[in-house]
Amino acid sequence: MTRILHLFLVFALLGVLAMGGGTAVLPEMQHMTVHTFHWLTDKQFRDIYSLGQVAPGPNMLMVLVIGYRMAGALGALAVGIGFFVPDCILTLVVNRWWEHLKSPWRVSVQRGMAPVAIGLMLSGTWAIAKLAVFGAIRINFEAMALALAVFAILLWRHVNPGLLVVIGGVIYLFLPH
């Protein structure tokens, strides 16, 4: 029971810290689940992140797998409620108050927090790049080529990004290693 509560509290904290979306909180999530609490290894964290990429819907649903791994179905539920519900309640309250928040500071907050969110997304991208491309021993050049190819294709064309990532994974199976 304490483990369930612990999972709930950790993911509730991660949820409210997710300024700028799920990617923004990835470094902190990795730090907490891998280094602070030793729930996962780096490799497991990367694999679970990839599962979230393969499934439809928001990638961050992968947090459920972390909860399941730690404490079964109840763990998944605790993580899901912790990670998603507080943000939903906050959004509901603020949405109803938004029109009343006509202060010029509202724009200042939006304007100032936008680059912070982008910086956090950059850190989230880097966290996954370190796990997938820059291994502990050597740089994985096939992985780097795949990441750059996906990047180039998405800048060039409008393709379904989820599908492209899955196709990328399958192509990677056939790359020499």
Binding site: T23, N59, P115, M121, A132, L173
Partner: peptide
């Protein structure tokens, strides 16, 4: 095979994350 596939998906996801970050931040950059 599963490990290798998920490794590839993570690598491809890096490309996607780069795109999303760049596109959302195109003004900020």
């Amino acid at each position: 095979l599963i490990t290798r596939l998920l490794e590839g998906v993570a690598a491809a996801a890096v490309g996607l994350l780069m795109t999303v970050t760049l596109q959302l931040g195109r003004r900020q950059f």
